[in-house]
Simulated scan of single mutants.
Amino acid sequence: MNNKVSEIESLVPVFDGHNDVLSQLWLNHHQQPEHAFLQGPACGQLDLPRCREAGFAGGLFAAYVSSPKLPSVATDSGDTANIVPGCGIDTRFLLEGTKKHPDFSPTPDLNSARDVTIGMMAFLLRIEKSSAGAVKICRSAHEIRQAMQNQALAVVMHIEGAEAIDPDLYLLDVLYAMGLRSIGPVWSRPNIFGHGVPFKFPSTPDLGPGLTDLGIRLVKACNEKRIMVDLSHLDEKGFWQVAKHSDAPLVASHSNAHALSAQSRNLTDKQLAAIKESGGFVGVNFGMSFLREDGQKSPDATVHEMVRHVDYLLEKLGEDHVGFGSDFDGVTLTPDMVDVRGLHKLVAALREAGYNQALLEKVCHKNWIKVLERTWGE
């Protein structure tokens, strides 16, 4: 790496590519979500007081609908660790086609998924309204920069898995009007738009048939609206279909390097090359299962596992195309991370690894904002 260690030790603001705090708030219905998030402590790894303490300046807040009949919010690693005891569980979802797809979690039905997704988006609207300017839902890169300048939490509405969207894409128009600016067509389960990649280790990501015709239509509709299409849960065939049909930068909001951890959810060098060619971006996932060479959740793991992936992705993509996609409230973190307040340990580890202030600022927030600007066109 050409950059030398900087002597500047100021807190670097972090704009992050993925969290599941809305799922935690949804599952904890007995509390007012606005109060839980704004005042803390929220159930899980993220709330506004902890964000301020950590220098967490904003990010993509995902609306994710849990699979039916699972014991807790389904996490990106398929486990329930870091879920605080006492959080509720919504069990209204219906089982759909799981016998045909034994490797996948059940897929929620359209009606339930729509209700939950709109409910989570409403949570964000209420949080913003109740925050007295401390939280800002952002619809452009300019609004993100302005929110960060004003010390407000910059929130981008994101959907992880498009089960809520109807085949005619009517709800896409509604959600866009609400503020939606990013969408992952699938989570790691099949829906009408395509096949997500199941959680397997060791495994190639080439585990399914990719997008359906409706999925390709959804990608093109997102291009027209300048909604970012997130590749993180697509199988490899779906990845290449997006690369073929999309005119936007290829972005994987919370994925890691397959060469370092052979998880099915991670990206191969060939995929990374396509992302680089498109001017795209990868956000490093903080989940141990996606970081470690053995794919395990080891009590000995540290934030240096993340540094290893950041180093590798910078080598493959260049310093303008890598950042963070923590997956707070969705994965098992390294024991020294615990929650959002552990970000300072990661930033310190990157400094120790030779990252100067300019590169830290790119990785921590500038690269994310720029790829969103390239995608949204504003």
Rank of each mutant, 00 (worst) to 15 (best):
P202H: 05
T204D: 11
T204N: 12
P205T: 12
D206A: 12
D206H: 15
D206I: 09
L207R: 04
L207D: 02
G210E: 10
G210M: 08
T212M: 05
D213V: 08
D213L: 08
L214W: 10
L214K: 09
G215T: 08
G215D: 05
V219Y: 04
K220I: 06
K220C: 00
N223M: 10
K225I: 07
K225M: 13
R226N: 06
R226V: 03
I227A: 06
I227N: 05
V229R: 00
D230W: 10
H233I: 00
L234N: 01
G238N: 06
F239E: 02
V242Q: 04
V242E: 03
K244W: 08
A248I: 03
A248N: 08
P249I: 03
A252C: 05
S253H: 02
S255N: 07
A257P: 03
A259Y: 09
A259H: 09
R265G: 01
R265P: 01
T268E: 06
T268P: 01
D269W: 14
K270E: 15
Q271C: 06
Q271V: 11
L272K: 00
L272I: 05
A273E: 14
A273F: 11
A274F: 08
K276N: 11
S278H: 07
G279C: 10
F281K: 04
V282E: 01
G283Q: 14
V284E: 00
F286K: 05
M288N: 01
S289L: 12
S289D: 11
F290A: 02
L291Y: 15
L291M: 15
R292S: 05
G295D: 06
G295R: 06
D300Q: 15
A301M: 14
V303F: 03
E305F: 10
M306E: 11
V307N: 01
V310M: 07
V310Q: 06
Y312D: 09
L314T: 06
L314C: 09
E315S: 11
K316T: 07
K316Q: 13
G318F: 09
D320K: 15
H321K: 12
H321D: 07
F324Y: 13
F324H: 07
G325I: 09
S326E: 05
D327Q: 04
D327Y: 02
V331H: 01
V331F: 03
V331R: 00
T332K: 09
T334E: 02
P335H: 15
D336F: 11
V338E: 11
V340F: 11
G342R: 14
L343F: 13
L343P: 01
L346R: 03
